[in-house]
């Protein structure tokens, strides 16, 4: 089973995060975990901060009509871009412009997030393209907001995948998540120019799958 890179075109969308090493690492990690994802028989999959939309679109192409796909982004232009990427690849992704997942009433079987993880001054977290990378102190401001609410939005047998950087202290994140009732493991790791990236998988404790 594989997840080929979807077609995309950012020409009209200049404030959208261009798919980069982290994006492709994320797709590779999901591809490697595809058998597990299938075993969950997901019906609703959400990508938070979808940017260009290629991550959620790659899953939408794979699962077709067996599942629904949702995407959020805080940047309105990214939502438009995600919608276009889905369209270019003949799939549907339901996009909403929102902060993380705060406006959802329902829960998801799979939640994906490649967050703004770069360590910056908190004041650099400001609208537009900055939002795609600026993570504030330890690159953890948005990550921590996201993880602290995960329990409310993930189904009991669900799984969450998130990208992190070494500077975000992934082992500390995993220890914090343990306290919040999640088992975590690193499913992919890659050193690229100047960045040591991880993909972490979170599962609710008590979920034996």
């Amino acid at each position: 089973m594989s997840l080929p890179t979807p077609i995309y075109d950012l020409k009209q969308f200049d404030s959208v995060y261009e798919p980069s090493e982290d994006t492709f690492l994320f797709i590779d990690a999901l591809e490697a975990d595809l058998e597990y994802i299938h075993s969950l028989r997901p019906s609703c999959i959400l990508e938070v901060g979808s940017g260009s939309g290629i991550v959620i679109t790659s899953l939408a192409r794979h699962f077709q009509t067996q599942c629904l796909f949702f995407a959020t982004d805080i940047n309105p232009v990214a939502c438009l871009c995600t919608k276009q990427t889905a369209y270019l690849n003949n799939v549907v992704v339901h996009c909403t412009n929102m902060n993380l997942y705060c406006n959802f009433k329902s829960i998801f079987d799979i939640i994906l997030f490649n967050p703004p993880y770069v360590c910056t001054e908190d004041s650099e977290i400001k609208p537009g393209i900055n939002r795609s990378w600026a993570g504030g102190r330890d690159g953890r401001i948005i990550i921590d907001q996201f993880l602290s609410q995960l329990k409310l939005f993930l189904s009991d047998s669900g799984v969450c995948y998130m990208v992190a950087l070494k500077e975000n202290k992934p082992y500390e994140i995993m220890a914090t998540m343990k306290v919040l009732g999640f088992n975590s493991c690193i499913i992919k790791e890659r050193r690229i120019l100047g960045e040591h990236l991880f993909v972490i998988r979170f599962i609710k404790e008590g979920n034996l799958k």
Binding site: L68, F70, H94, T96, N99, C102, N103, F104, K105, S106
Partner: peptide, 14 residues
């Protein structure tokens, strides 16, 4: 916006 999305959205974080 499809009605499935409407079915899932709330303004409770306000």
């Amino acid at each position: 916006m499809k009605l499935i999305t409407h079915n899932m959205l709330t303004s409770k974080c306000m």
